[in-house]
């Protein structure tokens, strides 16, 4: 499991700039990022190298930020890699609430970050199928 920060953002100009500037100024590196949005608001989800510190900085800046643990799965960076993992979860009727990915280096595996409705079941399933999950993202 990897620690993820979720931040509430209004759909308004300049909000993302403020988040990224605040983190950058404090030397916090964003490793992965995704935004879910509706017409009114968005939820920014980020993986950073220093989670607790980043949350404090964001709260001091007046943002609503919370920490969630997400499953990080290593998936071979080739066609069909992700499909295989998702199929295992689907077979067990585990629901994916959201998911995003990033690649650390071109020659390495992709990392898939996902939040599911039944975390222990998902972890067990992945383990049984020999899918590697990670607990830390390099800074």
């Amino acid at each position: 499991m990897v620690k993820q920060i979720s931040v509430f953002l209004e759909n308004k100009c300049g909000r993302l700039v403020r988040v990224t500037e605040a983190l950058g100024k404090n030397n916090i590196n964003i490793r992965a990022l995704s935004i879910a949005d509706t017409s009114d608001f968005g939820i920014l989800r980020i993986i950073v190298d220093q989670t607790e510190k980043a949350i404090k900085i964001l709260k001091d800046e007046g943002f609503i930020a919370s920490m969630t643990e997400v499953i990080a799965v290593k998936v071979p960076d080739r066609p069909g890699g992700l499909a295989k993992v998702l199929k295992y979860l689907e077979e067990k009727e585990i629901n994916i609430e959201y998911l995003y990915s990033f690649i650390e280096k071109p020659e390495e595996d992709a990392l898939i970050l996902m939040r599911v409705d039944d975390i222990p079941h998902a972890l067990q399933t992945l383990k049984e199928k020999g899918i590697e999950t990670v607990n830390k993202v390099r800074g």
Partner: peptide
């Protein structure tokens, strides 16, 4: 204004709140 207690990291959760 969203407060800490109200916040959910899921879009569905916030839309439900609205």
């Amino acid at each position: 204004e969203v407060s800490e207690q109200m916040f959910s990291d899921k879009v569905k959760g916030l839309e439900e709140l609205e």
